[in-house]
Design a protein around this nucleic acid. Structure first.
Lengths: 126, 126
DNA sequence: CATGGATATCGATGAACTTCGATATCTATC
DNA sequence: GATAGATATCGAAGTTCATCGATATCCATG
């Protein structure tokens, strides 16, 4: 017997509960006033992006092979300490923009497909 | 004799010098790594948006008649003091999302056409 | 020109955030 | 199992930021 699951309209599937996730999916920012809760969630997502180091990290990962990069290759380009880079990567991951996978001693961060497109959609007038 | 002016590729015309403006126009965020300067500028723009009160103010203005609203009609909805609302409106204006016009004692803030679309474009994979 | 109302600026306060060095954890290798 | 390397966590320091009350500015009206 098939179970009928109610997906959100835009088919954004929240897979991780600890995820603040590029959520606020399909919210018409310009159509009607945001509620306090909606604004809070959207701001959390945008705050993850509104930082120079994080934008650079994200762009480096996105521009890498398979949209994936090792931490060891991210430290030098941004010119920050290893703990600081680790901190920023954690924030980008919590916000739903990156995922982490480990191979041996190395940690690889990968761009979440569609995460940036979802942000893009937030600002279209439509 | 016609003067040949070099507009940025995307035809975003910076009209105000004091404007931090939704700039970073046409920057391929996911195509190649951002430079430090590009990241800095983009972060400034996003920081203006990454705040719950400012998102609500922006959405209220955007949803109003002619995408325009009087300060007096913005204070109550967001539930903050008048100086704080004024502060947020100033930041949104400096970032190029709103413009200010005064009629009598009242100040009206208007959504800058295309400003949000430009932000949207920043995150498309293309 | 004095008054009242609408908005902006100022100064202060408390919270949040970025950054780093030190350290912990985990893994491969000898 | 000891060692070395890669990454995450911790605690602290300095900075940025949101917020407000008080006040200044600007404008219409009497």
């Amino acid at each position: 017997m098939a179970v009928n699951i109610d997906y959100p309209r835009c088919m954004t599937m929240r897979l991780d509960v600890t995820d603040t996730s590029a959520g606020a999916c399909c919210t018409p920012l310009v159509r009607e006033p945001l509620t306090a809760a909606e604004a809070e969630q959207l701001a959390t997502t945008l705050k993850a992006l509104a930082e120079p180091a994080r934008l650079r990290l994200l762009s480096i990962v996105a521009a890498s092979e398979n949209s994936q990069a090792c931490v060891c290759d991210l430290i030098d380009p941004v010119g920050l300490s290893q703990p600081t880079v680790s901190h920023h990567l954690k924030i980008l991951t919590a916000a739903g923009f990156l995922t982490r996978s480990k191979r041996g001693t190395w940690a690889y961060y990968t761009l979440v497909p569609g995460a940036l497109d979802r942000v893009s959609q937030l600002f279209v007038a439509s």
